[in-house]
Design a protein around this nucleic acid. Sequence first.
DNA 1: ATTGGACTTA
Length: 645
Amino acid sequence: MMAIHQAVNSFILLIHRAKTTLSLKEIHARLFRFNFSQNSHAVTQLISACSPFGAIQYAILIFRSFRDPNPFVFNSLIRALFDNSCFDTAISHFAFMMQLDVRPDYLTFPFVLKSAACLQEVGLGSSLHSEIIKIGFELDSFVRISLLDMYVKLNNLGSALRLFYETPETNKIRSILLWNVMINGCCRASDLKTAVELFERMPDRDAASWNSLINGFVKIGDMEGARDFFDRMPEKNVVSWTTMISGYSQNDNHKWALDTFNQMLEEGVRPNDYTLVSVLSACAKIGALDAGRRIHDYIRQNNVKINRQNGTALIEMYAKSGKIICAKQVFDLMKEKGLLTWSVMIVGWAVHGYCVEAFRCFEAMKCAGITPDGVAFLGILTACAHTGLVDQGLWFFNMMRQDYFIEPSVKHYACIVDLFGRAGRLEEALKFIEDMPVEPDYVVWGALFCACSAQKNIQMAELAAQQLLRLEPSHPGSYIFLSNVYARTGRWNDVERVRVKMREKQIEKSPGWSFIEVGSHVHQFVAGDISHPCTAVIYSKLEELTTDAKAQGYLPDTGWVMHNIEEEDKEDAVGSHSEKLALAFGLISIPRGEDIRIVKNLRVCGDCHSLMKYASRMSQREIILRDIKRFHHFKDGVCSCKDYW
DNA sequence: ATTGGACTTA
């Protein structure tokens, strides 16, 4: 007896060694040779050893050759199946287990329930629950949490709540964790009312309880609610702070995200990678270079290791703040680059108009053994579009489908439309849209519209604008687009008609805003803004600038105004676009010799673009403007986009 | 005797 034991043990040792040296097949063969293929201990170990290799078929094979399955063997197989994402097979083996009357134990259910959750099968979830009750399995706190978690992941909040309420109120079973899972489930289902109710009723709360609730408010976009609980939270941890920071950023309040981060540092809470990524992404959104640099300094001073996540966030911050060379420096220093890292770098080159570098980066990525995905291709197509390389772009588009089997998304189609459109090949763009296998969406028609607008093809622009209106009748952009077409041709009656319709439907024009960072402060402007403390000085500077530019040949282009107003007023309306106000403010407050960086949430209008060129020459300063599409580097009267955007 | 008990927050 003793000898058999030892032999089995030495087999188990062999199996452990299999992870490095011996092949599993060889072990299995030996198992047979020594007649241990029916030893459940050895078989259980062998099945478990298959899992990390993904040798799941082999694990099933071993399982089938075992004649007298017991819970141990079943459990290890179900576990292995779950780990290899074979959820339905895991479930069917559980059914098999029941069929053979093998009683499941405490290690069976966690993985079966998780499989049901991953399969997103609501009915299966409930029947597993009944099965547990039927066989009289004890519903201890472990099983309850597993069940609760499964219901939450199946979006079956009702069943989760029912199970929760019938749980005896002893602290041991209704643990903090159980409450937290429940609160989190309510938050996932956007049922904040119940979440708060549960939270208030909890006998004890830990940080995760608070954070879960705060996160619930963040997810529904209620930052005041989130702030309320955040302020009341007695001991905020990193997660609490990060939730707020990324919450502000997700809800488009990047300035507050930065403020919250600074506050966090003042409170002496040490940021982790999640925090750094969130705050860097907030910087990237508004092009807050100084803030971003300070975070980079923090990273260096505190010896934070650059890894895939924070490194990628740094690259994106620099790229979107106009410092593509700094982005490249971080990129070169990074040891472990992921797919996202490469994509961010490619898109970075693309939006700065560095087509060759984007191509090189794309090739280098493939050499590094990373397979490009749809996002990487989108970057490379953007690069082609921005530099007018139509044939190259089409070549990449075909490569994506034929060599990489990536089904193009609507974004890719929109990019190709853009590619044709910018090159002035409008007919081809339209034909491309008509031949698309998927229904063209708002972005696709929008790309065509912009191209028509730039090429002054009013007929096709009207067609595109009508499609936009059909697709998004409540989107303000659709009306603006259409009205812009009419405005350009002087059809003021039609412009008025569109405006009335907009008013009837109570559609508000989404405001264009611009950000400019001065020193360490971010200033925000909307068109016609008078909220800034320096408003008077800004406007007089702008007037001076416009006058000087006019003397140099600048002609205000009033075609960009949508309303039918007197010529002079029109000049006013384009004259106070947010990017112009930001520019004037920058000229006053940013020391000479430093770049002026402006970020705009929409596309820059042609008039502003023209004025920026004059301003860069007259002030002998570099102006870096980022709009929703790309970067414009203005230097000595010329823009890096070569007026092609 | 064997099987990494469950799980939440960015």
